Amino acid sequence: MPYLVALVVLVGVFCLVNLILIVGVIRRLREHDEALAARSEQEQNRRAILSEGEVAEPFETVSTDGGLVSRDRFEQPTLVGFFSPGCTACHEALPGFLAMAERFPGGPEQVLAVIVDENGESGAQRASLEPVARVVVEKLGGPVTSALHVGAVPAFGLVGPGGTVMSSGLRLDQVLTAASA
C-alpha cells in the first residue's frame, strides 16, 4: 500500500512538472510569433529603392563595357534592377528580369542592371545580364546604390528623365504593375 501512494504522488509530481513546462513552451512560442510578425511587418515596410516621384541623387560611374552611366543620362524610362551574387531571391528574380529586359523599349540602353558585389563573385550574373542591359558592378554604397537609396536586393525600379523614380519595388511585377497603371 505505501508503494502505491508513493507511485501516485510521483506520477502527480511528474504531471505537474510537465504542465509547468508546457505552459512555459507555449509562452515562448507566443513571444516568438510576435517577434516574427514584427519582423515581417518591418520587411514589408522596407523600401527597395526611392519611392515613386522621388529623384535620384546625382551620380556617375562606368559600366562593364566602359560606357558612362549617370543620372543625367536617363532620358527615357529606364528599367533598373539591383542584384547580388550571394542572394537566393536575386537568382530567382533574374530570369524574369532578363525576359523583361529583352522586351523593354529602347533595348539595352534603357535597361540598367547593378550587381552589388562585395566579394568579386559577379561573373555569372554579369555574363547573363550584359547582352540585355548596361551592367554596373559595385559594392553596397557605391554610386548607383547610394543615389537610389537601395535598401534591399533584389530591387527594381523604373526611372524616368532626370532620375525621377516612376515606380519601384522588391519584386519586378510590382514595378511593372505600377508603371502600367
Rank of each mutant, 00 (worst) to 15 (best):
M100D: 05
A101H: 03
E102S: 15
E102M: 15
E102A: 15
R103P: 00
R103N: 12
R103G: 05
R103H: 09
F104V: 04
F104T: 05
F104D: 01
P105Y: 10
P105S: 11
P105W: 10
G106Q: 07
G107Y: 13
G107Q: 14
P108Q: 14
P108L: 12
E109T: 08
E109Q: 14
Q110H: 12
A113L: 05
A113K: 04
I115M: 03
I115C: 05
I115E: 02
V116R: 06
V116P: 08
V116D: 04
D117E: 09
E118T: 09
E118Q: 14
E118V: 01
E118I: 01
E118C: 00
N119G: 01
N119A: 13
N119K: 10
G120Q: 10
G120F: 08
G120M: 10
G120E: 10
G120W: 08
E121S: 15
E121L: 15
E121M: 14
E121F: 10
S122K: 03
S122N: 09
S122I: 01
S122C: 05
G123L: 10
Q125V: 09
R126K: 14
A127E: 15
S128R: 14
E130L: 02
E130H: 00
E130N: 00
E130Q: 12
E130S: 06
E130T: 11
E130Y: 00
P131T: 15
P131F: 13
P131L: 15
P131E: 14
V132N: 04
V132R: 11
A133P: 02
A133W: 02
A133Y: 02
A133F: 03
R134K: 13
R134V: 04
R134A: 11
V135E: 07
V135L: 03
V135A: 07
V136H: 05
V136F: 04
V137I: 12
V137N: 01
V137T: 05
E138F: 13
E138N: 14
E138S: 12
E138L: 13
K139W: 01
K139H: 13
K139C: 06
L140W: 09
L140T: 05
G141F: 03
G141S: 07
G141R: 06
G142K: 09
G142A: 09
G142T: 09
G142F: 08
P143N: 11
V144C: 07
V144H: 07
T145K: 08
T145F: 07
S146F: 00
S146W: 00
S146G: 02
S146E: 10
A147P: 00
A147S: 07
A147K: 01
A147L: 00
L148I: 10
L148D: 02
L148N: 01
H149V: 14
H149W: 12
V150H: 08
V150Q: 07
G151F: 06
G151R: 08
G151I: 05
G151K: 07
A152D: 01
A152W: 00
A152L: 11
A152Q: 05
V153W: 03
V153N: 10
V153M: 10
P154N: 11
P154I: 09
P154Q: 11
P154D: 11
P154F: 07
